[in-house]
Design a protein around this nucleic acid. Structure first.
Lengths: 200, 200
DNA sequence: TGTACATCAGTGAACGCGCGTTCACTGATGTAC
DNA sequence: TGTACATCAGTGAACGCGCGTTCACTGATGTAC
């Protein structure tokens, strides 16, 4: 039965939200379109009125999840006027590791994206650039411009790698899971300090 | 029909080899047991004479692939008496990114392992420790002992993260794919230099 | 060494199930008069 | 504003297919005598 434009837009949003959450939790290959539709309170047929295929949904859901996560991060950072070091401490932490379903989709799906279609790869690349720009902006003038981008890229990669590894080993080696996060935080901190020009 | 002990052991090895290669290429959820058996020249039923379940096979295949990759790396490193910097340059490179099927299983499956069973997590943790120990051993006395392990962990995480990100964006942003590798290499290099004690 | 037979690696059909996608249909919405 | 009707979001059965796993069976291997 037909539904109002507002309701249709709302349903589309619910599908994106459900897809985004489930893909992060169980992986893109680990979730079926029926699961997504059910969580959004619809049937699987309705999904195809909004998205041409699962792959197209995956790409949009990736962007949707990333934008939501970026908004949360910006709010968190804005409240404390976050420095680069604040970002590194906040993003590469046990809290972030345990927040899979609402956390960063790049981290949740890093090693799967290369096997998905081109649309998902594009969503990932855009998200990576946006995250990098945010971190780059948090670096002070003490770090010369070219090294700013380099450090920002390394921090984002460090977050993605550290959270993925920490999640991978937490079932069998919980203390290693925490050690990994700390090691990456400290190493990025050391590189940050090394690249800073101190003139007094 | 029954088969000689030697042939059975050989078939088991072929199953592990096929599983290991396919899991790296298409992901654990992206490969069926029939695909694996077919590549090993057997039928899917035979697989269950060697492994109790797909999950158990995945854990063994992970270790198998990792051991093979470690042997290759040790041979490569032994030939040139590799330093920490050599490892970083060699492991975080476009060559390694393009070598998915025979490359490091940790890198190929990083974000999927957390969703697999405990056996796979254990294989991952063991592999991570082994890789870390190898890199730690490559660091000279110029770096104090506690920082050696920290740098080694960061380098392994850096490799896993950098290759995963590079593979994720290569379809849509090839130049970013290379930039990421270089940025991580240089940042680990900077941290390495910063942690080295220079007494003259 | 030769024979009888238990073992078991491997086969292939079958199990129930969930997958992504399609499609004829429904009926409230939105529009044209 | 009231009525007639085209639109189309959503339903649910059905499509063909592949999934992981089980199992009765085969027949060469390995062993006991």
């Amino acid at each position: 039965m037909r539904v109002s434009k507002e309701k249709a837009a709302e349903n589309r949003g619910a599908l994106l939200q459900a897809a985004s959450r489930l893909f992060r939790k169980r992986g893109i290959d680990g979730v079926g379109v029926a699961d997504i539709a059910r969580e959004a309170g619809l049937t699987h047929g309705a999904l195809y009125a909004h998205f041409p295929s699962k792959d197209a949904l995956a790409a949009e859901a990736f962007t949707h999840g990333f934008e939501g996560n970026m908004a949360d991060t910006r709010e968190w950072a804005g409240g404390r006027d976050a420095s680069f070091q604040d970002y590194v401490e906040g993003l590469i932490s046990p809290d972030m590791r345990d927040k899979v379903e609402t956390g960063c989709p790049m981290t949740a799906s890093a090693s799967e994206v290369g096997r998905q279609g081109c649309a998902v790869s594009e969503s990932f690349a855009k998200a990576f650039e946006e995250m990098t720009a945010m971190l780059e902006g948090s670096l002070s003038d003490a770090v010369p411009a070219p090294e700013r981008r380099r450090l920002a890229i390394a921090a984002v990669v460090g977050q993605i790698g550290a959270l993925a590894v920490s999640r991978a080993v937490i079932k069998s080696a919980p203390s290693l899971a925490d050690e990994v996060l700390q090691a990456v935080r400290e190493t990025i901190g050391a590189a940050h300090r090394a690249e800073s020009v101190h003139r007094e």
